[in-house]
């Protein structure tokens, strides 16, 4: 379980996240939705500590981090926490000087100090899982956007994270390529990975989301199943859900 307590994040005077309280259940898929600028991506980046919250607490399966502006977190703690979370970015961000398999092996070899042979075998298995074992020795620039994102998913999985974070994973893809990436995420959800996904795809949110969080102006306006949100009687949410079908 990933617990977020009283988490706030400001960028100078701009309040991006305000007193977020949230419980993300293990082995479930949590979807974060909301209008642009509502703080979705910042919330996700806080869950990976790419953005450090100003105040609050994050507890991942019993390991707790407390944020306090007067007491910066130890680097060691940040690094240990990041090893347990996997992040998939909107624009893939594969290492462009490394081949596909090297991208996937990078974390296990450099961070987890795994042997190269083991990391390679595990990497190939992950590539098979995302259907790209024939691309192992190609460079990212030789792949389509959808393929790059599938490699990025494999790279995140290689760290065997306790939670997988997706930041609008299909926003940079055309509809045809989108399908192949969504299929992988759907499969991971079925395998009961703990997933947090920021998306604008409402149909997908409805399909895979066990819990849907509606964020607005840095606060959680409502959360629950799709049906609960839909029938919440909140006009703002209804308009959002129906216009973005």
């Amino acid at each position: 379980m990933l617990q977020i307590k009283n988490l706030s994040k400001n960028y100078e005077d701009l309040k991006v996240l305000e007193q977020i309280d949230l419980e993300i259940e293990s082995n479930k898929t949590t979807v974060i939705i909301g209008p642009s600028g509502s703080g979705k991506t910042t919330l996700l980046r806080c869950l990976n500590l790419l953005a450090i919250p100003d105040i609050g607490e994050i507890d991942l399966n019993g390991v707790s981090l407390t944020f306090d502006p007067n007491q910066p977190l130890q680097k060691r703690k940040i690094l240990d926490y990041r090893k347990k979370t996997g992040m998939v970015f909107q624009s893939f961000h594969l290492f462009s000087h490394r081949t596909v398999i090297e991208n996937i092996m990078e974390g296990p070899v450099t961070v987890l100090k795994k042997g190269k042979a083991d990391a390679m075998a595990e990497g190939m298995a992950l590539l098979k899982k995302v259907g790209l074992e024939d691309k192992a020795n190609q460079y990212p620039r030789q792949l389509s956007g959808g393929q790059q994102q599938r490699v990025a998913i494999a790279r995140a999985l290689a760290m065997k994270p306790e939670v997988l974070l997706f930041d609008e994973p299909t926003s940079a893809l055309d509809p045809e390529l989108e399908i192949e990436v969504l299929e992988i995420i759907r499969a991971l959800a079925k395998e009961h990975y703990t997933i947090v996904i920021v998306t604008h795809k409402m149909t997908f949110a409805k399909e895979v989301g066990d819990n849907i969080i509606f964020l607005e102006n840095g606060r959680i306006l409502k959360q629950g199943s799709y049906a609960e949100l839909y029938h919440s009687g909140n006009e703002r949410i209804n308009r959002f859900l129906t216009t973005l079908q």
């Binding site: 992040m87 970015f89 462009s96 990078e106 961070v111």
Partner: peptide, 26 residues
């Protein structure tokens, strides 16, 4: 690209690992 640097951090690398493995070779 900053994104690749963040991707390095996201898999748990520290600053020197990101520098040595991601930034300097490129």
């Amino acid at each position: 690209p900053l994104g690749q640097i963040e991707a390095g951090y996201s898999i748990g690398m520290n600053y020197f690992q990101v520098l040595r493995r991601i930034i300097l070779p490129q």
